[in-house]
């Protein structure tokens, strides 16, 4: 009898489901969402890049030594390891914002792989340049020293 009355009562109850996307779904403040990077606070130690399990963060480096942060929201698994690895408070924070769904136009895999490849090559070129400059400085110093010795 109680079951029957309950079933009748259910006819007048509001649905248990949420009419998403017309109404928001449950999203707590503690939701693990997008990672935000603050370039003004970042000390460019690349610890987040090393810690990231899927490799969603990569730093590129221009020939003048300036670094830039690249982040792929679709590769990211939102685990927050980068935020925990970050030694500078506030440089990386995890928001409760959801990532936008991926579209075909974004060509995420192709363009992201390109960015990673370019970033690594750029870093390698910069390091080679630095090594070359250091070698030139060392050679100049050695030549100077040899010249000074010759004078004596």
């Amino acid at each position: 009898m109680t079951t029957f009355l309950k079933a009748l009562g259910n006819l007048f109850r509001t649905p248990a489901t949420v009419p998403y996307p017309f109404a928001p779904t449950y999203l707590p403040d503690t939701y693990r969402g997008l990672i935000k990077h603050d370039a003004s606070l970042c000390i460019w130690c690349r610890k987040c890049e090393t810690a990231c399990p899927p490799g969603a963060i990569v730093f590129s480096q221009a020939m003048d030594g300036k670094q830039a942060y690249h982040y792929n929201t679709h590769v990211c698994i939102y685990c927050g390891e980068c935020v925990r690895a970050c030694p500078k408070a506030g440089a990386l924070i995890q928001t409760n914002e959801m990532a936008a769904p991926v579209t075909a136009e974004a060509k995420i895999n192709h363009s992201w792989n390109g960015i990673v490849k370019e970033a690594l090559a750029g870093r390698e070129a910069y390091a080679a340049e630095r090594r070359k400059a250091a070698a030139a400085v060392a050679a100049a110093k050695a030549a100077e020293k040899a010249a000074a010795e010759k004078k004596d």
């Binding site: 449950y26 707590p28 503690t30 939701y31 693990r32 698994i77 939102y78 685990c79 927050g80």
Partner: peptide
């Protein structure tokens, strides 16, 4: 919902 509240995600708790 409780799992999402505690861990930050419904399925992948990490």
């Amino acid at each position: 919902e409780l799992l999402e509240l505690v861990t930050g995600n419904r399925v992948q708790f990490d």
